[in-house]
Design a protein around this nucleic acid. Sequence first.
DNA 1: TGTTAGAATGGAACCGCTTCCAACTGACGA
DNA 2: TCGTCAGTTGGAAGCGGTTCCATTCTAACA
Lengths: 335, 335
Amino acid sequence: MAVTIYDVAKQADVGVGTVSRVLNNHPQVSPETRQRVLSVIQVLNYRPSPMAQRLSRRKTLAIGVIAVFFTRPSVVERLRGVEAVTAASEYDLIVYNVETPAKRDAIFRATADNRRVDGLLVISLTPADCDVARWREAGVPVVLVDTHHPALARIVVDDVQGGYRAAQHLIELGHRRIAFVGDPIHTAFNFTSSRDRLVGLQQALDEHGIPFRPAYHQAGEHGQDQARALTHQLLALDEPPTAIFAASDSQALGVMQAARELGRRVPEDLSVIGFDDIEISEYLNLTTLRQPLFESGYRGIEMLLRSMEQIDGEAVCQELPVELALRGSTAPPAH
Amino acid sequence: MAVTIYDVAKQADVGVGTVSRVLNNHPQVSPETRQRVLSVIQVLNYRPSPMAQRLSRRKTLAIGVIAVFFTRPSVVERLRGVEAVTAASEYDLIVYNVETPAKRDAIFRATADNRRVDGLLVISLTPADCDVARWREAGVPVVLVDTHHPALARIVVDDVQGGYRAAQHLIELGHRRIAFVGDPIHTAFNFTSSRDRLVGLQQALDEHGIPFRPAYHQAGEHGQDQARALTHQLLALDEPPTAIFAASDSQALGVMQAARELGRRVPEDLSVIGFDDIEISEYLNLTTLRQPLFESGYRGIEMLLRSMEQIDGEAVCQELPVELALRGSTAPPAH
DNA sequence: TGTTAGAATGGAACCGCTTCCAACTGACGA
DNA sequence: TCGTCAGTTGGAAGCGGTTCCATTCTAACA
């Protein structure tokens, strides 16, 4: 059936070792022999079997990416960055989608003891110490994107600072009644970004001597609908906020939807600011904090490839910048 | 290092063949032996090496998905369906992203002669006859989603009928000046859906004796911005359309954006109807034709798995339904 | 001229499974 | 008592590469 390295060796009248050396660009092959082998490869249209290579090299030639997959536009953008790098490498990209904590744990475990991947990128999910220990034991390098673990290399943004800047922007516009719509403090997935952005918000409020009212802090499952419901509550308060900081653009959409439903104009009656700068945000003219999503995936895989070559195990932490994308959904408060 | 089948065999005092039979649930093993082997496996925490299995079984245990991956929200939704099935199977999901025709061709070729995948799902990309021949020769089963090729199994929707229904809806509302914003007839990727939807539109117009004016047919690269620009042209006509049918929701967004920029209210001054029903459409209250995106991926992989088991090569064509998602962006024309 | 270091090469051993064939064991009917 | 046969089992031979070691050849050096 398929042509093997033995066929090539026989045809070129050399040993299989030599063919292998030609394939892998070892220097110890004379130019004439190399040429002869190459032309036989050409003629027979020979391609080495990846399966056999993987077995004998003891590498899977695959990189795994674990993500809270497509439920969030921001993740999709990160994945584009991931794919851009893997496509240019010799590695296959194996995608694992997580939708429940149980599945997350199962995949974390499987990637450690199955020897299915040479390296692992984990997006927005925080592994437990025991997961990290298992990966270490299995010798699987891991890089995190958008989460932290002290023992692992990672690509992050400064969410606290981002939250701070968002708040600062609103405060500078003159807002004092600033509410926050974000994820619950304790989510099933232990997402930290919403929490950190809230911390930044509070810092900014503190610095300006603005008290943070508990009623202005609304948390619900990540997503548009939940944010919409929370906003209805906020705007029904006796003293409703004049600005809402949403922990993500998806949630900001829900906020804007609620405002529309209640006849509040954005930004005249209510300023809205988001976080992430997903694709739709520009279209909706949403002021937001842009984080380099594509780049985070890109850099993450680069970092992973590097740590797959040299396992010196220094857990680097690379921080990407956050910047304010000033658009039309924020303005000074009315009256 | 890692424990192998030989370690298990030695420890359980049986031959490797027997261990393999236990692993693969062959019936010809006595209950006592099976039990003994299983407990040794447990004790040693043995997991068979996927790489070795792949090599000796001559299967890659991987399924490839080729898609215009992230550029279109609809594709992402299909991929979710794909992942839902592969996650529950023994197969890994390898994702190939196509962003240029050159890359598409390279990947089509590579998947055929690399023996990297046991089966292939192609989303929204139309393979050429030579690609199909190459896959057939390599023995790689292929299923298409959202495209056609007579020799390949596929999951599709009736785009012509969808276009027809969209038009019918507008006509029933009383519109006569109906424009179309879609992809160019000849795209680099040879996408057919926009073209077919236009055909459906024209059928409906014909049936109602409404002439289709060439000026009402605008085509440009798929995407919001292009659709926006085209809409500006349409609305600048002496006799501008009262309704616009966009070949996709992404394009419908561009249409709505342009309308907003020109001070036209939707749906009072301009009705807009899209196609796909991506996530954001509900939020934007866009009337559209819903096609089951998630399900298309789901069914596609199911079909693929089936055809990987029994290569009887009957190229089935499964058609999924399209239905009108009636929302607020369409209304009777003014005056 | 003998010695030797280094380059080029062949090929066996190995990676860790699956599979097939031979062999062994009892039970059972002739 | 002796095949026969079905149920089990062991283990060699792949799968298709990589790698290491031994070998051959060449040229340079003492």
